[in-house]
Design a protein around this nucleic acid. Structure first.
Lengths: 191, 191
DNA sequence: ACCTGAACACCGTTCAAGT
DNA sequence: ACCTGAACACCGTTCAAGT
């Protein structure tokens, strides 16, 4: 008679993200995570595979959640603004979020999936998908970098020295306006 | 009779940065680094302190080196462009550079030092130091994020899907032009 | 089928002991 | 003063063994 299944991948990922949010990236150990789920560390491997795959699944889930929360918008400018703000909000809520993303090794399938999600999010706007991806990536890179710098133990002192929130607001505007200007020649003033 | 001193902090930092460049962040272990220096791991602690301080010293050294290599320029626009390109170049040369920076816990003194270096680099241009710091930080955040995303095992596939170099070039231009436009009102068309 | 205890090779770090 | 061997508490991971 099989032991009753206590685990499934979804529950593990939920708890892993909870753990990240409450205790940070260093707390994401297989033993610690297993303990939270009332189980021993080796049990996780059947469901998650090795730890790098657990981390990539967490990142993928966070990315999907953020896209869903941004939803549909009236123009790519408005969408991109909302996207940037959502990424920023996530990074203020989840410590070490930037480090998680940057330490993630995606599989080819995961990377293709994320690229497709990104393209789909801007598909119905008056913009070529190559420009859409490039803009998204520049916003994502900026927010990731700024969030990473403003996070962690240095956050308090850094925020004293530099107005992080203002930098975020200004730069997000600069990026959207700048990309608009560079693309406008191709799509006309109504694009 | 004391054992002859084989070690000093400078030599350790040089070797640590070499090791990072050739084998990546995972290879920076106290035992591995010590082995490279012909010594046992515990010997390092006298010189480096705990590992997080070794990492922050490495990051500080890399940042200082980059500022030196950028040097003096004719205007803040030209300086900021060169600064962005230097950060980008460093990240193409040193794997896991973004992860190193984002996993670094600076001491208060280190953070103050970096802030002062940054302010000094743009002090003799026609721009308020608050704007200078904000611009630098937005460029640094963007390049750090993009370099981090384009680095690591996913790099090849991501570069196939997205024109990373073009995104870097375009966004750097967008950032400099955008900050110029936002500041111009205060400094006039010659600033 | 699903979970576990024990083990392996690694970490960072400490410290008494050597010279 | 400077370095080391041994040890400690942790990792990720594997696997035979239990049910």
């Amino acid at each position: 008679m099989p032991a009753p299944a206590k685990l499934n991948l979804d529950a593990i990922l939920d708890e892993a993200i909870n753990l990240l949010q409450s205790e940070g990236l260093e707390a994401i150990t297989m033993r610690h995570l297993a303990g939270r789920l009332g189980v021993e560390a080796p049990s996780l491997y059947r469901h998650t595979g090795p730890k790098p795959r657990l981390l990539s699944a967490m990142t993928l889930r966070l990315f999907r959640r953020q896209l869903d929360e941004v939803g549909v918008r009236n123009s790519w400018q408005v969408w991109l603004d909302a996207f940037g703000r959502k990424l920023w909000q996530t990074q203020t809520e989840i410590p070490d979020c930037a480090r998680l993303v940057l330490s993630t090794n995606f599989t080819d399938a995961e990377l293709a999936m994320m690229t497709e999600w990104a393209a789909a999010a801007l598909r119905n706007h008056d913009i070529a998908s190559e420009h859409a991806l490039a803009m998204m990536m520049s916003v994502q890179a900026f927010v990731l970098g700024l969030g990473g710098l403003a996070d962690g133990p240095n956050a308090a002192q850094l925020r004293d020295a530099v107005p992080i929130e203002t930098i975020f607001e200004t730069t997000l505007g600069v990026l959207i306006d700048g990309w608009k200007a560079r693309i406008e020649g191709k799509y006309g003033p109504n694009g």
